[in-house]
């Protein structure tokens, strides 16, 4: 069992969770992920590391309550435990050697892009961080990124922070201003990563994207997470999750990403119904113990 040490809502949709996993905390690096399972009947879901503390023996994950499992997860409390927590999985992002980098986070992707920006900044790299959110209330990690970057540009879809537009517009502007990046790293929705890659391609800027396909085991055994890169399918869990953004077939990835959509909405509705009928505070805990006892 893996005890949860802290749970904190970062905004109405996004939760930060600190999990006790000393062995993983010693090893995990920016770009790597874990897979977790809440309980005996749970599914395995992949979540990328947001932060870790080898001394304290903890790994921090950040997630958005978008489906059945993440909704149940968001209702867990400090002192509860996760049944399974495995990692580090995947390869660390290849950041070494970058001198002028742009790290781009879309929505929740910001939580995953943050450790990379921090690592680069600590290595003396000049780091621009561009993040994008639907509105100003959803902005994540603003202070942390300010402390770990040369420049932070926050874009919102509705302009509620006075900076309306897409992350790619900010990226294009920085390129036009002569930012002269030798590395661009994009983490976020597939559609965003697709357009970041399209923006940098004419300039030949090395662009890494962190792919987020469906996963089952996360150890290279089932091929559920295959991503088309160039002419071949690679496995995001063992060959990735980062790939060359100029080689990834994003349309293929978007299509594969929705294969289980009907199952997901059914499961989400079931969990939402249960939480509403039992009250949001205790819904998960009682559902949790019900399942245990079944």
């Amino acid at each position: 069992m893996y005890p949860i040490e802290r749970v904190e809502a970062l905004n109405p949709e996004v939760t930060r969770m600190v999990v006790r996993a000393p062995e993983i905390a010693k090893k995990i690096k920016p770009g790597q992920f874990i897979m977790l399972r809440i309980d005996e009947r749970g599914e395995r879901i992949p979540l990328t590391m947001n932060d870790c503390d080898a001394q304290a023996g903890t790994v921090t994950i950040v997630f958005q309550a978008v489906g059945a499992t993440t909704m149940r997860l968001a209702n867990m409390k400090a002192g509860d435990s996760l049944l399974d927590f495995v990692g580090p999985l995947g390869n660390p992002t290849e950041l070494a050697g970058a001198r002028r980098a742009c790290v781009i986070g879309g929505g929740l992707g910001t939580a995953i892009a943050y450790p990379q920006a921090k690592w680069l900044y600590e290595q003396g790299c000049e780091v621009d961080v561009i993040t994008g959110f639907r509105n100003a209330d959803l902005v994540l990690f603003e202070d942390e990124i300010n402390a770990s970057s040369t420049r932070q540009i926050i874009m919102t879809d509705d302009g509620s922070n006075g900076n309306k537009g897409l992350v790619t517009q900010a990226l294009q502007q920085r390129i036009d201003e002569g930012a002269n990046y030798d590395l661009v790293l994009a983490v976020g929705p597939v559609i965003m990563m697709k357009f970041v890659a399209a923006t940098t391609k004419p300039y030949g800027i090395k662009t890494l994207v962190s792919m987020n396909p469906l996963m089952i085991d996360g150890t290279g055994m089932c091929g559920g997470c295959r991503v088309k890169v160039g002419d071949e399918y690679l496995h995001a869990c063992v060959d990735g999750p980062d790939f060359d953004g100029h080689l990834v077939d994003f349309d293929d990835a978007m299509r594969r990403g929705v294969m289980y959509r009907s199952f997901e909405s059914a499961a989400r509705d079931a969990v939402a119904g249960r939480m509403t009928s039992e009250g949001r505070d205790c819904g998960c805990a009682s559902a949790h113990s019900d399942r245990k006892g079944a």
Binding site: E43, T69, F263, A266, A267
Partner: peptide, 14 residues
């Protein structure tokens, strides 16, 4: 993952 028992178990199978 016992997906044949979805939704009693959380993992689906197509």
């Amino acid at each position: 993952m016992k997906a044949y028992q979805f939704p009693e178990y959380d993992t689906p199978v197509y």
